[in-house]
Design a protein around this nucleic acid. Structure first.
Lengths: 196, 196
DNA sequence: CGTCGAATTGATGTCATTCAACTACAGTGG
DNA sequence: CCACTGTAGTTGAATGACATCAATTCGACG
């Protein structure tokens, strides 16, 4: 069985095998098939997720029925509407599986136990949040200031493998442009001999 | 002297007067005049800030020399490039005072002491980060999906008082449009008898 | 009153959207 | 095995939203 979560905690939160054993009971995993929902809008999302394998997306649907991808989460990423978990609020987001996916379910209980067991975990968890904020701010400044082409180049720079795993129309949705526009951006890049 | 930070911690992080006394030594305040920098790009930002009074903005300047406002922080808000503080990295952002402003300087030391003294503080701090993430995600989905007008309406809904305190060209920069476009959006709203 | 930056307005340009047609390909059922 | 269907991706022409540039106007302040 895949156990990348334990490995991840060892490497990043510097947890020991002993501590991980203590946590064992709090670790719950679940598998979703391609296309299944991990969580839906207007429901209370009880967990965040750590993706062990596969790929999921977090997105909204606006008042015109259009999807907007907020985040992709491939293996070893965290995702989920944490504020729904945390504040027990109704979620604004959908999360579904782009590929068959196995995740670890993370709830408040898990968090508290992990912090109890390992002070390092608390530090790491905070770092994660800070880092997340940093990414979001970067993305905002791209959306404010950069053209569609610049945003696409930034995307393939940041997530080179996702370029192949995610259908083009979803990437367009992530970039905030239409699939047609992305197609044209790619055509133009090809014309200028751009190599991915 | 203004002591809104203590009040804030009492109300939000549920800290007691005793705990606050213990923290006293770690609380450092500083005042900036309108136009002064709290922090600049390419320097390591040693603190985050809690704004006791006044108003600051956090922004970048892109490769074309254009400013993009990432965040406004009026009284009782936190701001700062936390990732620069946290990871000791060079900051991407400028922070300057839009009005004469008094802030509390928050560094890693302050954070650690506060967490030591009050477990509630740790919880609250985490909530703050979650909340920040929620706001940023909302903003991203607005930038991806909403028109200039919708974004402006959302802005005055979220920050009604800032509409008066912040010059229009900065609001435009926050919304990701030009001052001219914002002017036209406002004109159009006025034509339709929109009341702020 | 004169100055300087902010805000408005108009004319024009650019980038991305929209809508529609068409191609490519994968899956389904006869 | 081939026709039928549906989805992704591409392309073209027309449209729309916002940007750019230039010319005023407004308003605060010395």
């Amino acid at each position: 069985m895949n156990n990348s979560f334990a490995t991840y905690l060892k490497n990043n939160a510097k947890m020991t095998d002993q501590q991980l054993e203590q946590l064992e009971g709090a670790i719950v995993k679940k598998t979703f098939q391609k296309g299944q929902f991990l969580s839906q809008k207007d429901s209370i999302c009880k967990h965040a997720f750590f993706v062990e394998s596969g790929l999921v997306r977090l997105y909204t649907i606006d008042s015109n029925g259009k999807e907007h991808v907020i985040q992709f989460a491939p293996e070893n990423w965290f995702t989920g509407d944490r504020s729904s978990v945390y504040f027990n609020e109704i979620s604004e987001y959908y999360i579904d599986a782009i590929e068959d996916t196995t995740v670890v379910l993370l709830d408040a209980n898990f968090n508290n136990r992990a912090i109890e067991i390992s002070p390092e975990f608390r530090i790491y968890n905070e770092k994660l949040l800070q880092n997340h904020i940093r990414h979001l701010q970067k993305r905002i400044s791209m959306l404010i200031g950069a053209s569609a082409e610049e945003r696409y180049l930034d995307f393939i720079d940041l997530y080179p493998d996702l370029t192949l795993r995610v259908p083009q129309w979803m990437i367009a949705s992530f970039l905030g442009i239409t699939p047609e526009s992305l197609s044209r951006v790619r055509k133009e890049l090809a014309r200028r001999n751009f190599r991915p």
